[in-house]
Nucleic acid binder design. Structure first.
Lengths: 258, 258
DNA sequence: CGGAACATTGATGGATATCAATCTGAGTGG
DNA sequence: CCACTCAGATTGATATCCATCAATGTTCCG
């Protein structure tokens, strides 16, 4: 039954706190500019980092989830189905909050989160976060913008599943990942490291692993990508975007043009 | 294309404000108990109600959406696709906020919202709402719980589209609507009024209108429902829930058992 | 070295799309 | 009030996409 639920090592994370909060602060200030006092308030919420191993479940349905954000690695948030299948609803990347239900004391989550890679996560003190939110409008605004952007990604995911062929859906998903990494300088040219296995991608797109293989193959033959796990290379972003109707507007933080 | 964007009549809504806020207050206090002062703070945000006609678009992608909630009628929140198709992402019922991007000054929405029936909507003063949120913890908590419950519905919608057959997806959707109405006493026994046309349901489930007809037909023949627009009757809720794996936990507000 | 998860490819079946025809009911203009 | 039109609903025939079953190869890890 899936991986262990225990963190693999609670110690051994010897990077200083100033670096631990770095990922979250960088993310939030990309949403809304933060002052020194805003950053200080966030640092006050910082707790010790925790490590998880690939395949570990960080949370499960029914849990009162801990207030955690991803510091390094990829995780998948999913709904376990009654027949044993899984539907992935969100790819969690560094800077993402694992489950925002943690902001609500006593709330339970309906999702599970499993690690696609080894993960470093960082806990936040709920009390200190609530203080930061109520006393620091910039922090509140940035967190709320994060909520809206995550909702946008979820809405586009619905559209992928409902209204796109498997090839279009895969192309759209990969372009989303490309856009997110491009913006934080996490790509080398058009090359991106995607640690997901084909069964993971199947759980994301609602198709079988066998068909994932065929779908990747069709994008390859169309000259759109090269993919040799874990390396993904985009060969023709413009044509690929046109092919699947990808428009990055839903990933943009700021208010649009007046 | 599509309906007018203008409210059909800005006047003629002659019910008193005390009733207008009623729907929202009732919804929020079902999430978290509200004191008299909480309710008063909400009433201070209340503005004049607005009417829309069936097929009108309330908002469109790119808009800075107004802060509105539905007072009566059903609306559909959807993403317009490049090929002209639509993917409905949310059914908006009385008490639902049309688009929470409105809480973020200057933010743009990526969705459109169209009226499935004639609609009475009610505007809220953003300034007064921000006051209520920052000064009234109960209000903030209730609004945040609403965000989480809407996210849960969206997550289950993803699972419907990704991991269920059309018959299972339809059964699951109808049971969700049943549960939401049952709880507010908006059903007569097992009979529910669903004003959606079959093409609307197709846009919800990501299938063609033709196949919606066949799918309804199969649920009918299975003895699960009677459906004669706009009347829907549930004949065997237990078997139907089992059939599609419906578990209402994701619609429950409160924290689970300790 | 052995095993397990992953990846690829082929053959076949089932679910849904597409195309087409008919029927109904509601709104509209004469 | 009636004829007309149009959106919606239903049913049939055919095509396409993806699932399923099966076999094989590969990589990684113990």
């Amino acid at each position: 039954m899936g991986g262990s639920r225990e963190p693999s090592h609670k110690t051994g994370m010897n990077s200083p706190n100033s670096f631990d909060t770095g990922v979250l602060v960088r993310r939030l200030s990309s949403y809304s500019p933060l002052s020194g006092a805003d950053v200080a308030a966030l640092k006050r919420a910082d707790r010790s980092p925790v490590g998880y191993s690939r395949q570990d479940d960080i949370i499960r349905p029914g849990d009162a989830p801990p207030l955690l954000f991803i510091e390094s690695g990829w995780a998948l948030r999913y709904l376990p189905m009654t027949d044993g299948d899984q539907q992935v609803v969100q790819v969690l990347l560094p800077g993402d909050i694992v489950d925002r239900a943690a902001f609500l004391p006593g709330a339970r989550t309906i999702t599970a989160v499993k690690c696609a890679t080894d993960i470093r996560a960082c806990a936040l003190c709920p009390r200190a976060m609530h203080e930061a939110v109520s006393e620091r409008p910039n922090v509140a605004r940035a967190l709320w913008l994060g909520v809206m952007l995550d909702e946008n990604r979820l809405l586009e995911h619905v559209a992928r599943l409902g209204r796109r062929s498997s090839a279009e859906a895969l192309a759209h998903l990969l372009l989303e990942l490309r856009h997110l990494h491009k913006r934080i300088g996490a790509m080398e040219g058009e090359t991106l490291t995607v640690p997901l296995a084909q069964p993971d991608i199947g759980d994301l797109l609602g198709i079988t692993p066998v068909h994932v293989s065929r779908t990747i193959s069709s994008l390859r033959h169309a000259g759109l990508i090269e993919m040799d796990r874990p390396t993904l290379r985009f060969l023709d972003v413009k044509r690929m975007s046109l092919f699947c109707g990808f428009d990055p507007a839903y990933l943009e933080a700021g208010p649009g043009p007046a």
